[in-house]
């Protein structure tokens, strides 16, 4: 694999990671927190329902996990394609 091909493969993997992450990002906030809340209302959480918990707590925790998982995966990818620093 030459540099150009490796560069393209690196970018394609990055885009794939970003796409999956953003689907989850939208699902927990706009999905569970707002649009799908009526469906989640059957699951009770402390005096209210799961949708309310996602809107006020859960989505933020998932956002955190997403960024750290993405940063870890990108570090591995950087090394695999030899584009890392240090």
């Amino acid at each position: 694999m030459n540099d150009k091909e490796s560069g393209l493969a690196y970018w394609r993997s990055n885009i794939a990671y970003v796409k999956v992450s953003l689907v989850i990002w939208a699902l927990v906030s706009f999905g569970f927190g707002i649009l799908l809340r009526p469906m989640l209302s059957v699951i009770p959480v402390g005096g209210t329902d799961l949708g309310f918990w996602f809107a006020q707590q859960g989505s933020i925790l998932v956002f955190l996990a997403l960024i750290f998982v993405y940063a870890t995966m990108m570090n591995t990818l950087d090394r695999k394609h030899g584009v890392h620093e240090d």
Binding site: Y17, V18, S21, L22, W25, S29, G33, F52, A55, Q56, S59, I60, F63, L66, I67, Y70, A71
Partner: peptide, 16 residues
């Protein structure tokens, strides 16, 4: 809740 999700969700966009 928009404020909570909106003002934190932006950091996912920033990071990626």
């Amino acid at each position: 809740s928009s404020f909570l999700m909106g003002w934190t969700g932006g950091y996912v966009l920033l990071a990626m």
